[in-house]
Structures are given as structure tokens and as C-alpha cells.
Design a binder for these strands. Structure first.
Lengths: 205, 205
DNA sequence: CTCCAAATGTTAGTGACTACCAAGTTGGTA
DNA sequence: TACCAACTTGGTAGTCACTAACATTTGGAG
């Protein structure tokens, strides 16, 4: 399910999807979310409005859908089970942020910043900022392996995920307000240590 | 602001508003929320679609807008400041529920039940079940009087309100699932005592 | 090469919601 | 009582998010 060879069709599909979302975020920031129609986005991306809807069920999803969830989920699954849950989740968040913001400035980092600022400044989107939470919830539960049978373990996983996401949210808001001048991974680490103590991420230092 | 004499104009306005909302909730329950158009509601209420939108900005508001918030707020403000915050809020909730469900069955109680069941069973509405929370938040802060200057007092008020609303939510869900057979005030009291101990509402017993 | 399925486009439509203008009512006031 | 201003409503036309149905092209597997 994860290591499928990238067929040409899937590649094209990913390209279209990426183009649509990039142009959407750009237009939303330039003209405002409400002042930009889905048709505008379609024109800018060089596709028909129908294609936009086939890739993103609603206009909100143009901003909300992300690949980061899967990125973080993979890192959680790959992290050693000997660490604490919060340590594994938090570490995955920091790692993912490092990977995303560390590349050349014109790349994913800038897009992530624009997307975050858009989500925070647009009322309709702000309310759904944590909607993708379920992706991480599932990843954490999956990472637990066979412990899923234990209800307590599942509850602990959900609690840990929620807490980590709250820290992530804090860091993202700060990062967006700072216009990306601070380093996102450090902000996340700060928020995590503020909540869980200095030694949460010790495994990585 | 509160004791205005009900002029004829305001009375008519309240009547149309009430008629629209009553027919809306009835139709939504009969045919489903999505399968009922605003035009259908307008027809049933004997007004034009424009009039519906003037009274209720969005279709969701046809279900969400209520007078209960104000009812509870008044009771909170009138309650003695010597009681605990949770006691005052909880007592107001129980009192309001008693007033609403105690009347003749064809009246407000039945409407409240239908409205609650609708909100719980409709995904688009369920997410906004606690949207009117701010009404109570304001009422509680107002009831605090001059303590508003104290940030701690405001935080305590918000925490107490949230906790009481969670209990109210639990009670409402149970009431709706029970199809109104249980007594709503008792369900609320149960949920409150489960969270805050047997003596929360003692002042009233 | 052939055939299937995925991806896109086109068209037509539904329905929530808004802007603008016209007409009738109400409530206070000269 | 007569009148004016504000309120309430209706109608028309339009925008825009979103859907359904059908036709067309193109990548992939046998």
C-alpha cells in the first residue's frame, strides 16, 4: 500500500493536484478567500472547474488537504517503540517540520507558511484547523501495534495526540504571525517542552 | 434593553419568525434537512424566501437560533452571588429546562425535543451544537459584575460555563435518544452532579 | 495491438445566498 | 387628523458552490 511504484498516471494526477492547490493558495492570499471563485482557481491552474472538484471535494479542502499528515504518520510508525508516546509524536512533528522548511525557500516551506497564514486569517477555515487530526490519531493507534485491543492504550494514544496537536497549533500560529522568520521546528520543540518538560525530546538531542 | 413594551411591529415580527422556525423544524424532521429547501420552508410558512433570509441569515440558523440562551442568561444574572458559579449556571439550566418542558405538551417542550433530535442527527448541525455557547459565556461574565477586571475570575467563569455546557450536552443527547420520555431537568441535574458532586445544586433542594 | 479504466471536459441543473428596487404598514409627530 | 420616516415584505435577477450525466482522450495491462 505504501511502496507502490509511481506510475505515470499517478504522477500526472499528483502534478495536477499540486498545481491546483498551489494556485488556489496563491490566489486566496492575493485576493482573499471569499473573493476568489473555484472557477478562478481552475483557470489559473489550467484545468476545468470539474477537475478541481474531482481532486478537492469542497473549496475549503483546497486549503485544508495536506500531505503533511501522512508524512508525520510515517515517521511515527518508524520511531522506536521504546520512547514515550509524546516523544514519538513530538519527534515526528519536529522532524517533519525540519524536512519541510529546510528545503530551498521557494519550495514547500513557503507554501506551508502561506497555507497556515491563510487558515488562521480566514474564519471559515480557522474553525477546521484541526480537522486532519484523525490522520494522526490513526497513525498513532497503528503504531501501537497489537496494543489496540487494550482500550486504555487507545485512550492514552488519543490524549497524547491531542496534546501534541495543541502544541503544534501553538507553534504554527506563532510561526505564521512571525511571518516565518522563526524556525518552525524550534517553535514546535519549545511548545512541546513547555507542556511536557525539557526531556520530552531528549532521545534526539 | 430588556423591558421594552412589545410594540405591534415587534409582535408581528416575532410571530413570523416563530412560524418560520416551527415549520422549518417540522419539515426538516419530516423530509430531512438536506432534502428540504429554504423555498419549501418559505412556502409552508406562507412567506417569501427573502423573508426567511431576513429573519435567519443561513439555513442552519433555522435550527440553531434559539431563545433559550437568553432565558438561561436572565436566570443566571438573577441568581444570588453567594452560590458557586457552577451552582448558579447549573441551577439556571435546570430551571429553564423545567419552564420549557413543563408547559402543555404541544408547546415549547415538543419543539425543543424536535429541534434537539434534529441537531444531533444532522451532521452539518451537530458540529455547531455548542455555537450558542458565547451567549452563556457573556451572561456569566456579566453576572460576575465588577470582578471582570480580574482575569482569573473570567477564566474561572469560562471554565465553569464550558463544564456546565458539556453536562447540558450529555443530558440533551440522552433526552433526545430517549425520545423525550425522561424528564429533561432531572437529566441535567444528574449530569451536573455526576461531574461536580451531589451538592452542586443543594441550594435549590 | 486491443481493450479497459482512469482522467478530464462539457453541459445543464439545483439550491443557498445577495443586491437592488418597489410597495405596503406601522408608529410617532406636527 | 394628516404626514413622514422607519420597518417589513415581495419580486427580480444574479452569483457561486456543488452535482449528475454523457462524451472524449489517454495511460496501462493482457
Amino acid at each position: 500500500m505504501a511502496g507502490q511504484q509511481p506510475t505515470l498516471r499517478a504522477q500526472r494526477r499528483a502534478e495536477t493536484q499540486h498545481a491546483i492547490q498551489t494556485h488556489a493558495v496563491r490566489l486566496f492570499r492575493e485576493r482573499g478567500y471569499d473573493a476568489t471563485t473555484v472557477a478562478d482557481v481552475a483557470d489559473a491552474a489550467g484545468v476545468s472547474p470539474m477537475t478541481v472538484y474531482r481532486h478537492f471535494p469542497t473549496k475549503e479542502d483546497l486549503v485544508l488537504v495536506d500531505q503533511i499528515g501522512a508524512l508525520v504518520a510515517d515517521r511515527i510508525a518508524a520511531s522506536p517503540a521504546t520512547r514515550t508516546l509524546v516523544g514519538r509524536i513530538g519527534g515526528a512533528l519536529v522532524d517533519a517540520a525540519t524536512a519541510l522548511t529546510g528545503e530551498d525557500p521557494e519550495s514547500e516551506g513557503k507554501f506551508l507558511l502561506a497555507r497556515t497564514q491563510l487558515m488562521i486569517s480566514t474564519p471559515a477555515l480557522r474553525a477546521r484547523h484541526l480537522d486532519n487530526q484523525y490522520l494522526l490519531q490513526r497513525a498513532v493507534v497503528d503504531a501501537l501495534g497489537d496494543d489496540v485491543a487494550d482500550p486504555d492504550a487507545v485512550f492514552r494514544a488519543q490524549a497524547a495526540t491531542s496534546a501534541c496537536l495543541a502544541a503544534l497549533h501553538t507553534a504554527l500560529v506563532r510561526w505564521a504571525e512571525d511571518d516565518g522568520r522563526s524556525a518552525l521546528p524550534e517553535l514546535i520543540a519549545q511548545a512541546l517542552t513547555a507542556s511536557f518538560g525539557d526531556d520530552v525530546l531528549d532521545h534526539r538531542r
